[in-house]
């Protein structure tokens, strides 16, 4: 079943790269929104909850870690899956983010295969 997606990254280039990779991975996304930081993402989620959020960690304004905590407080996003995308690959950081409510973690640089592997559990 097609899913809706919110992409949160402060770099427009990176958002484009991620979208292209999602397409190359063949994931069934029927609609998506983009946000440049956590605050913008929360505003969009208030209006329209999504199935999956793909979120960078280091962003100006509200970063990814804080955003995860805020999203988890929203009843309307109880079923939303959050997958973090970051260049940081420290195990403690990944464990911390998952404990805070994220459902997955993809390290940059990624490939269509690694994106597919990490997101396909949330596509059904």
């Amino acid at each position: 079943m097609a899913k809706s997606l919110l992409l949160v990254d402060d770099s427009a280039t990176m958002r484009k790269i991620i979208l292209r990779t999602l397409r190359m991975a063949g994931l069934d996304i029927d609609s998506f929104e983009e946000a440049g930081d956590g605050n913008e993402a929360l505003e969009k989620l208030k209006d329209k909850p999504v199935d999956i959020i793909l979120c960078d960690i280091n962003m100006p304004g509200m970063g990814g870690l804080e955003m995860v905590k805020e999203v988890r407080k929203m009843d309307s996003c109880a079923d939303t899956k959050i997958v973090m995308i970051s260049t940081e690959s420290a195990e403690e950081l990944i464990e911390g983010v998952l404990a805070d409510g994220a459902n997955g973690y993809v390290t940059k640089p990624f490939t269509p295969e690694s994106i597919q592997e990490n997101l396909s559990p949330f596509m059904n």
């Binding site: 770099s11 280039t13 790269i17 970051s86 260049t87 390290t107 940059k108 640089p109």
Partner: peptide, 10 residues
Amino acid sequence: GEVGNLLVGS
């Protein structure tokens, strides 16, 4: 900037 970001990731 993203080239640098991915470079640092690798």
